[in-house]
């Protein structure tokens, strides 16, 4: 079956053991203020615009059915209010100023791409990692990719924030060697404020997963002024201690490398 991804990154060294290929699935139910992959938030393709790459060929002016690309006061504008994300402009923009992010691909296609580095996985103890966005929002597509990887003997990791129905976990559990589980904030109210979603389901899923996952690593992005307070850290330690299983935990340092993407997507960068 087909699914929606926004990137496949080979030679990943920071998404599980060994040398890995990371597949980024598009769409996420949370809206974390610090998100570094804003192109993974919506489930549909979007147009990223890099004005500095524009060579001024003017093709997009003709191609756009809604007149989104035009000149106003001798400057080039991209009026997103009328954009229906048809992608006609990006398909012909060879300068790379207009780029469609998000493409519909078959699970088999992705697995074939992953398989290109088979020998690197075998020699390094690596494999495939599914990230996002939230990969578990496309559970059937994910399952088919996992099955394809397992058939070829690759180990599989999933990076999830857990904000999905438990039945999604049920589906992928047997084929997943490692869960990299993001637990961003334990305080429910703060979690809702900073991510747009409550964390009850996330915590419940984590407890259930702790009893079932082959390997589980809990990760927390350490966001200055948000979840790096002593109280929050104490709550996190308590939560981890209550999982009924010794669980590895790591803090991921915050970085601002993704900030430029908000501009390219025409999105407001949330403050926090």
């Amino acid at each position: 079956m087909d699914g929606m991804i926004f990137d496949i990154q080979r030679f990943s060294l920071d998404d599980g053991p060994g040398i890995r290929t990371t597949v980024f699935l598009k769409g996420c139910g949370m809206r974390c203020a610090w998100c570094h992959n804003p192109e993974g938030l919506t489930a549909d393709p979007e147009i990223m615009f890099y004005p500095q790459k524009c060579v001024g060929c003017g093709k997009c002016f003709q191609l756009c059915p809604n007149g989104c690309h035009r000149m106003e006061d001798s400057s080039r504008v991209f009026d997103r209010t009328r954009c229906v994300r048809c992608g006609a402009c990006a398909a012909q923009c060879w300068a790379g100023a207009l780029v469609m992010t998000g493409r519909c691909v078959s699970a088999q296609e992705v697995v074939e791409e992953i398989a290109k580095d088979a020998l690197f996985y075998e020699n390094s103890g690596g494999g495939a990692t599914f990230s996002g966005g939230e990969p578990l929002r496309q559970p059937d597509f994910l399952l088919e990719m996992l099955a394809g990887c397992k058939e070829r003997g690759f180990t599989c990791a999933i990076e999830t924030a857990g904000q999905v129905p438990w039945k999604a976990f049920e589906k992928v559990l047997p084929l997943t060697d490692l869960f990299l589980y993001d637990l961003k904030i334990v305080d429910g109210a703060l979690h809702r404020k900073m991510t747009g979603a409550g964390n009850e389901r996330i915590l419940n899923n984590l407890r259930r997963l702790a009893g079932r996952a082959k390997q589980l690593i809990v990760r927390t992005p350490e966001i200055p002024g948000v979840n790096d307070t002593p109280e929050e850290k104490r709550r996190l330690v308590e939560t981890l201690g209550s999982l009924g299983r010794k669980v590895e935990h790591v803090y991921l340092p915050y970085h601002a490398l993704g900030n430029g993407k908000y501009d390219s997507l025409g999105m407001e960068k949330p403050e926090f």
Partner: peptide
């Protein structure tokens, strides 16, 4: 921390 991966990368390149 990453050198181990570079060793693997190099040895795999040799093998390939």
């Amino acid at each position: 921390g990453r050198l181990v991966h570079m060793v693997t990368l190099m040895k795999t390149a040799v093998q390939k």
